[in-house]
Amino acid sequence: MTTATPVITLNNGVTMPLLGLGVYLTPPDQAAAAVAAAVACGYRLIDTAAAYNNERQVGEGIRRSGIDRSAIFLTTKLWIADYGYDSALRAFEASLRRLGVDHVDLYLLHWPVPMRFDDTVAAYRAAIRLLEEGRVRAIGVSNFGPRHLEELIARTGVVPAVNQVELHPFFTQVELRRFHDRLGIVTQAWSPIGGVLRRRGEGGGGDVLDHPVVAGLARKYGKTPAQVVLRWHLEHGIAAIPKSVRPERIRENIDIFDFRLAPEEVAAIDALDRGVRAGRDPETADAADFSIRVEDD
């Protein structure tokens, strides 16, 4: 099965697929196969990060797929330990070497660092330079709140094309999405089916896929709960990057373009929002708080 994924136009005119494969927590020895399987069934957006320590394998998977590099929208992210202007440029070159490519389509700052926001701004200025040089096709951020975005834009004059944030039916980020819409920033969801909760073993009430509203819609449409939740994202115009290493689940996650949710069904899922994030709070992000070390070249 191959499926044509709808695209969204970013604020600089570049088009980006609305659905892609995320590889957060994908072990390096499984990443290449997952990427190749995703491309084979129609994915054209692959999202990785320096901090995931699987960029090499993502690049290998793209080459293994047999699809021309120009057909793949490739995202990677700058880790916060490499913020600052010169260090960001060096880290970008290291990402290119690991990926085995000469450019990336979207380059994101992985987190804001409020206690060192000068370094965050300097890193973004480096990303602007890469954009101007054609080394990246679009730039953006991840996990930024309105206050972070306002300051970043005020100090650089460049509106991010994308903000990738935790977003799922239990944490819908309505106000942030409205803020994005006013500025022309695309909202992209990590943990789009609530995996950040499910990994914590909260089960039952902590798993949106078990919720009666989602389960009922899955029965109605002959789809899985995960497919219903991903379709909910698309109905809102939210880009999503579900993660899986299982070929059957990868195929399932992209098989969401043959049905639509009615407005009242979208609203019913909207009503599941608890307003509580499960991931880290961006207001307290700092490299010292993460047990992450980006692999050497």
Rank of each mutant, 00 (worst) to 15 (best):
T2W: 09
L261Y: 07
L152T: 04
R125D: 00
V121S: 10
G59L: 11
V245F: 13
A123V: 06
V229A: 11
H180A: 01
R198W: 15
I241T: 06
I153K: 06
L272S: 10
R178S: 12
R274M: 13
D118I: 03
P169K: 02
T15I: 05
K77T: 09
R274I: 13
V186E: 03
A239F: 07
A37T: 11
D47I: 00
A138R: 01
P146E: 10
A288P: 09
L167M: 02
L261V: 05
V228R: 03
W232A: 11
E150C: 03
V104H: 03
V113R: 01
G20W: 04
W79D: 13
R249L: 10
V174N: 07
R199E: 15
I193Y: 10
D105R: 00
R274F: 14
Q173V: 08
A40D: 11
K243C: 08
P28D: 12
D273M: 11
V104N: 00
L108T: 05
A38N: 07
D181I: 12
T172N: 10
G134L: 05
D273C: 14
R63M: 12
L10T: 10
T75A: 13
F290A: 07
L45A: 00
R90G: 05
P263W: 11
G20E: 11
S142K: 08
R177C: 08
S142P: 03
E202H: 14
L45C: 01
E202A: 15
A239D: 01
A40Y: 02
A40V: 05
T26Q: 11
G275I: 13
T48I: 03
V196M: 09
L78T: 06
F257D: 04
V39G: 04
V101M: 12
P160D: 01
E265D: 15
R129E: 12
A51L: 06
A268V: 06
E264D: 13
A71T: 13
N11V: 03
R97P: 05
A267C: 12
Q188T: 12
E248A: 15
Q173M: 04
G13K: 08
R90K: 13
E235Y: 02
R135H: 09
E133M: 08
G194W: 15
L217E: 01
I8R: 12
I185E: 02
A123L: 05
S142N: 12
I80R: 01
I185H: 02
I241E: 01
F290G: 07
G205D: 14
P146G: 14
R69T: 08
G134Q: 01
D270Q: 14
L149W: 04
T3V: 15
R63T: 11
L45T: 00
H103T: 06
